[in-house]
Nucleic acid binder design. Structure first.
Length: 592
DNA sequence: AAACTGCTCAACCGCGTTGCG
DNA sequence: TCGCAACGCGGTTGAGCAGTT
């Protein structure tokens, strides 16, 4: 403690001048004395400004080294020791989902650092390679929706340890009907074998996933095997996952979520991952470098990168490479989907347009509004800088267009959460100026429609929001429109706040809540909400996914929400009321 | 017991991003 | 707009340890 100077020292003992050149900086292993100095420094001055450590203490370490030491070894709540089985499975699943995004993976593993995870994985990778084993569990997911059978985009991808390959993006839960995410290990085969080589449209086993039109076969799928392979917490998840997988046609799987969320946190995490894996960004054998290549404007700016469309009802799977826009023939007219998603969090909204990206639009801060019209099978993805040093990404795919009686389009959209850790605002519609500065806002009004998918997260303040998926709008004969809600439950122990209603954070005062921003949301049938995060202002919130599952009894033009799903909150539950609105409405006037 | 090999993990390095002047 | 500093992240390295020969 005495080693911390009470006053910032600009120079010390003649060493500072030379320290500019780093001549006197120590390298190598840290001593306990150095650790103590650094801990005391952080206790006193807080994290950050690591280069100031040298000025304030006797420590002769560069800022980088100090930061690393603190993050990886000295900060509180670090978990030491070998990875538990659950953690290992989590890492596997996370890696399948995220690739080598160690920092993101670390967010799922409390107490573990990205470095630890990285080391673990590299060791595992080496071990597997040496043994000729796949990096991912045997007989892992090979989930294919029948709609995906026609997809062939994957076939153009090679598959090796060294070359990044991505699975179809999206997640199971993002888009049940598309659990088209093909996930197959090359177990038993060459590690470099093409994973889908022996499949036509991915295989001999094509199972629908929560697809009301699919015939569910009561036999284990590869995906199930994968789940089984993920032991431990999977045991809690598996039944519900199976239930989810093989729910009867037309049924709504909300119970699945209920079960999932009733499970322990690790199960929830795993459930998230399980949902995530098949839609994973990464593929099976540790084949990626960093972020998903498809993000941000790049995708939008590469309209030429298109795949051959199939028929209107077929689903487009999502290749590793960016695919910009698909225009699949629309039986009627152009289907317009307006979706709004507002990240209510402290850091501010991130704007994501679904359609055009002008130069001006690349600067979210300069945008005031966005109007997007997407067409069937459009693929949109957005990213950009956010407020508070965060990066935002979002990927979304509006895959197929399945019949559009008139204005009611059928879209399936997926969303992939490749965020680095940031607030994401997906807004396909209108973003008011006020919404650009959430710190000034007291409320936002996200408007979402079917098949929208949104998600957001914030990491600096650790707010996360799992995908908000409005998955599927399947035919609308007239009165009854079946929906399948999906939700990817969030993270481990990250508390989060989810509000669909104007109001304040649970347990907070009004004054506080005004700073935290309230949210007014209008949800549509089968919308799924969930969000998480560790709070603004050190307050924790918990929220489970809010699933508005069924769509029952409606006239052609009028929707009415019926069911909702809430699980425990720390305090007040999310409140979602039934809403009635006209399907043609651009913006429902009623709010919850 | 010594030599060798493989593994783990802490630390470093380079690069990209962001904020600020 | 530019340059710099700080920061964060992923890749790489190498010391030390453990197991094997």
């Amino acid at each position: 403690m005495e080693q911390i100077n009470s006053q910032p020292i600009e120079e010390d003992s003649g060493g500072e001048s030379t320290s500019k050149g780093n001549e006197d900086l120590k390298k190598g292993p840290w001593t306990s004395v150095e650790d103590e100095i650094l801990v005391n420094y952080v206790n006193r001055f807080g994290e950050g400004n690591w280069n100031a450590v040298r000025k304030h203490t006797e420590l002769r370490r560069c800022g980088k080294s100090c930061r690393l030491r603190w993050i990886n070894h000295l900060r509180p709540n670090l978990k030491k020791g070998a990875f538990t089985e659950d953690e290992e499975q989590l890492v596997i699943a996370l890696h399948a989902r995220l690739g080598n995004r160690w920092a993101q993976m670390a967010a799922f593993l409390p107490g573990r650092t990205d470095n630890e995870i990285k080391n673990y994985w590299n060791t595992r990778k080496k071990r597997c390679q040496r043994a000729g084993l796949p990096l991912y569990p045997p007989n892992a997911c090979h989930i294919v929706s029948e709609e995906n059978v026609q997809s062939s985009c994957l076939s153009k991808f090679s598959y090796s340890y060294d070359q990044p390959i991505e699975l179809l993006r999206g997640s199971i839960l993002d888009s049940p009907d598309i659990i088209s995410d093909n996930f197959q290990t090359n177990y038993g085969a060459s590690s470099h074998a093409m994973p889908f080589a022996d499949t036509v449209g991915f295989g001999s086993q094509n199972y629908a996933f929560a697809n009301p039109t699919a015939n569910c076969v009561e036999q284990p799928t590869d995906f199930e095997n994968f789940l089984l392979a993920l032991r431990g917490s999977v045991a809690d998840v598996y039944p519900t996952t199976k239930q989810f997988l093989f729910q009867p046609s037309g049924s709504t799987p909300q119970n699945c979520f209920g079960s999932l969320h009733g499970a322990d946190p690790s199960s929830q995490r795993l459930a998230t991952l399980v949902g995530a894996i098949p839609g994973s960004h990464a593929l099976l054998n540790d084949t990626f470098s960093t972020y998903c290549p498809t993000r941000g404007t790049a995708m939008l700016e590469l309209p030429s990168d298109q795949r051959v469309e199939t028929d209107a009802s077929s689903r487009l799977t999502y290749p590793a490479t960016p695919v910009s826009v698909y225009n699949v023939q629309s039986p009627s007219a152009t289907v317009s989907v307006q979706s709004n998603f507002v990240s209510p969090w402290k850091s501010g909204p991130m704007l994501q347009q679904l359609h055009l990206l002008s130069d001006a639009e690349k600067e979210p801060s300069e945008m005031s509004s966005i109007t997007s019209t997407i067409r069937p099978n459009d693929v949109f993805e957005c990213s950009g800088p956010s407020i508070n040093d965060m990066e935002l990404y979002s990927t979304a795919v509006a895959d197929s267009y399945m019949e559009s009686p008139s204005t009611l389009g059928s879209l399936q959209s997926k969303c992939f959460p490749p965020w680095k850790s940031s607030p994401v605002l997906q807004d396909a519609h209108v973003l008011s100026r006020a919404e650009k500065e959430p710190s000034l806002k007291s409320s936002v009004t996200p408007i979402v429609k079917s098949n929208d998918v949104s998600e957001c997260s914030i990491s600096g303040t650790e707010l996360y929001s799992t995908p908000v998926a409005f998955d599927r709008y399947v035919k609308s004969p007239s009165a009854t429109i079946p929906f399948q809600p999906k939700c990817v439950p969030p993270w481990k122990n990250v508390p989060f706040r989810s509000e669909l209603q104007e109001g304040h954070a649970p347990g907070s005062s009004e004054a506080e809540s005004s700073e935290k921003r309230s949210v007014t949301s209008i949800v549509r049938p089968n919308n799924v909400f969930c969000s998480s995060g560790s709070s603004i202002n050190d307050r924790e919130f918990n929220s489970k996914p809010v699933v508005v599952d069924t769509y029952v009894g409606s006239l052609p033009a009028t929707f009415s929400l019926q069911s909702k799903y809430f699980t425990s909150w720390k305090s007040d539950p999310v409140h979602v009321e039934s809403d009635t609105f006209n399907s043609a409405e651009e913006e429902p006037s009623e709010k919850f």
